[in-house]
Each structure stands twice: as structure tokens, then as C-alpha cells.
Amino acid sequence: MASLKLVPVFLLLGGAALAQTYGVGRAPTAAESAQSITLSPTGAGLPVGHGNAVEGKELYTSKSCIVCHGPEATGGVTSAPNLQAKFGPDHNAWERRGGGDQVAVRAPNAIILWDFIHRAMPLGNEGTLAPNEIYALTAYLLYVNKIIPEDQVLDQNNLTKVKMPIGNEYVRVPDWKPNSPRIPASLLKIPK
């Protein structure tokens, strides 16, 4: 009986150890917190702004995107990728990417394009584009890939609502548990 009584004590001790904090580090300032660029797929946190493909096409030239990605965003000038998917909307979205095509045509959410331009472009001058410019460039890339019309204005409210070709036909990474197999048994055709 004595050993049974000890169990809760050990649990308590374990709980205390797990809850250990050290008081190291400091709270970020408001300015530091505001530097976070991580966006939710819901669009929460997108800055206010708007732009369409016509404006985007001008920016594509004036911001020198054209120098690396080529006229019409088809690549081939440098090793910077083609931004026009090889196949058009008559193909299944999963087949619209190939070779060096890097624009996220088969993404389920247009926010991926916005996010990548925002965090990674233009090379060497990342973070210099204003929100309006990023909405416009996103609209241009969606337009050349025949996903939205040329005059559609994208903004912080409708960006995540753009109907992407892939719809809901995708699967994300499986749930993870320690010591579970790489391929869940349910997906194997023959039992191990």
C-alpha cells in the first residue's frame, strides 16, 4: 500500500519538473512582434492593400522581375524559375507543374504566392515591396496562369478566397506520433 501512495507524489514531482521555467529571455517589444511575417491561411494578419494584374504587369517590369523571370514570366533567361505553369486550366491542377515551374499553381490558397513574394522577392531586395505592390504582383501571376481575370482586384479580404484550380483535392502531411511507422499501415496494400 505504501508504494501505491507514493505514486501521486512522483507524479507531482514530475509535473513540477515539466513545468520548470528559468526566467531567461525577455518579452518582445511591440515593434519586434510586428516584424513577424508568418501568415495564417485564413488571411488573418495580411496587411491592408489592393492591386490587380494590370498594375502587377507594370511592376513586374519596373521592379526588375522581368530581368530574371523573363518576359511573360516564362523563365528561361536565368536559372530563376518559370512562373507560368506549363499546362493550362484544361489540365488537372496536379499536372500543371513540371520542370522548373515554381509558381504555386497547385497550391490550395493564393496566400502562398503573396507570402513568398513578400518574404523572398526580389532577390537581394527582399522586404522592399509595399503591400499594394505585392497584391498587384500576386494578381499578375494568377492572371498569367489563367486563374483570375486581368481586372480582378485582390485585397486583404478576398486573397484567400481566390478559387484555386486544385480546389480541395489535396492531402496534407499525416498526423505524427512518436515511434509510429513512416507509412501508416492503413495505406499499405499488403500487410507487413
Binding site: 490550395p108 489535396y170 496534407r172 502531411v173 513512416r182
Partner: peptide
């Protein structure tokens, strides 16, 4: 919730099996 960064989008797949194999 699962986010949709450029890297994450690379981990989406047509099938559950495909997604498991690139994880």
C-alpha cells in the same frame, strides 16, 4: 492549424500515401 508556407505547399500531395512519403 497547418499553415501554407511555400515549404508546406511542397508537402501537399494528391494522396495520403504520397504525403506520407515526402514527410
Amino acid at each position: 492549424q497547418y499553415q501554407l508556407n511555400m515549404n508546406d505547399y511542397g508537402h501537399l500531395n494528391r494522396t495520403a500515401l504520397g504525403a506520407a512519403m515526402i514527410y
